[in-house]
């Protein structure tokens, strides 16, 4: 089990980046260094009449400086309090929590052909790298920033390893043993990242995603990009992916689950649920699973522990 820490984060800065949307940077001792994309932290109110933690996704984490970036929308009393945090103030944090996105799936070669077949790229997909959608709806966008950055860094690191190892044969050979997971070296090729972002009207975090690949935008009011939702944008532009990572409101996730089933695309969804403990002890935060879960022995999984990221076929929405 990955290690979790309880510590006081010190506010480095807190700025507004949209209507009711704040970008909070905190200095942490251990959390940032341990954080993986798709994980979250529990952030506690300094008003002690509010007992429960607020789960907020990790938008950025610098393992060297310990800087943790959280981007949130004011949704109630707790987040309103956090929006007023000023540099130098402290907040209690617990994290990193949850499983995070399975990075290795962006580099996998095993079943990537299923989808690639349809546009005739089957033969080359292994070498070409997987086409990855990072789909964020509204305040589900923040974790995509850290995911895009980490995928890109991993691909670069793998490329460097391959280059220093010499021949492409060596590279291919080491790729065979990557099944062990995210830390394996010898990734075959950098994934092609397309960020698909859905907004009501006002844009945010778009520039944070641009360095890592194409950015496609959908707005409900049509003020920018496709008028409609993220799936409307995907269909309008006729985009295809081998693997999808997504976070956003439940109706969006439900539509993506269906889309993934229809198109046979591998899809990973980050879910939200009310939490009391955030660490797996209270069973507040469950979602419905398609199979009996190994821990609960019923068709329930804890979003805070087995999640928040689930394979779309493993859960009911």
């Amino acid at each position: 089990m990955a290690e979790k820490f309880r510590e006081q984060g010190v506010v480095l800065s807190n700025g507004q980046i949209g209507t009711g949307i704040f970008d909070l940077k905190l200095k942490t001792d251990k959390i940032a260094a341990a954080a993986k994309p798709g994980q979250f932290v529990s952030i506690y109110s300094n008003d002690k009449s509010r007992l429960l933690p607020r789960p907020i996704s990790i938008c950025g984490a610098d393992s060297e400086t310990g800087e943790l970036r959280l981007t949130f929308r004011v949704a109630g009393k707790g987040t309103e309090e956090f929006s007023r945090l000023a540099a130098g103030e402290k907040v209690d944090l617990v994290g990193p929590l949850g499983n995070g996105f399975p990075l290795e799936r962006a580099f996998a070669t095993d079943d990537s052909r299923n989808c690639a077949d349809r546009d005739g790229a089957a033969e080359s997909v292994g070498v070409k790298g997987r086409r990855v959608f990072l789909i964020g709806g509204g305040i589900g966008i923040p974790p995509m920033v850290q995911l895009a950055k980490t995928l890109t860094e991993r691909a670069q690191a793998a490329g460097d390893t391959a280059a220093s190892a010499g021949s492409p044969e060596t590279f291919q050979a080491s790729a065979g043993s990557q099944a062990a997971g995210a830390n394996a070296v010898g990734f075959q090729a950098a994934p092609f990242i397309t960020s698909v972002l859905g907004f009501r009207d006002e844009l945010f975090l778009v520039d944070d995603l641009k360095p890592y690949g194409d950015v496609v935008i959908a707005t409900e009011d049509g003020s920018c990009g496709t008028k409609g939702n993220v799936l409307d944008a995907i269909r309008e532009k006729n985009l295809k992916a081998d693997v999808i990572y997504a976070c956003g409101p439940t109706p969006m996730l439900r539509a993506l689950k269906k889309y993934a089933e229809e198109t046979g695309t591998e899809c990973w969804l980050s879910l939200e649920e009310k939490m009391a403990c955030g660490i797996g002890a209270c069973l507040s935060c469950v979602c419905r699973s398609t199979e009996v879960d190994g821990h609960s022995k019923v068709k329930n999984k804890r979003v805070c522990t087995e999640g928040p990221v689930f394979r779309s076929t493993d859960i009911e929405l």
Binding site: K48, S49, R50, L51, L52, E273, K274, M275, A276, C282, L283, S284, C285, V286, C287, S296, K297, V298, K299, N300
Partner: peptide, 19 residues
């Protein structure tokens, strides 16, 4: 085994919570 209730299963209240 018991499956428990549908969610939301908890909410915060002043100096307390409901579960």
């Amino acid at each position: 085994p018991w499956p428990g209730n549908p969610t939301p299963r908890i909410c915060e209240t002043p100096s307390g919570m409901l579960n």
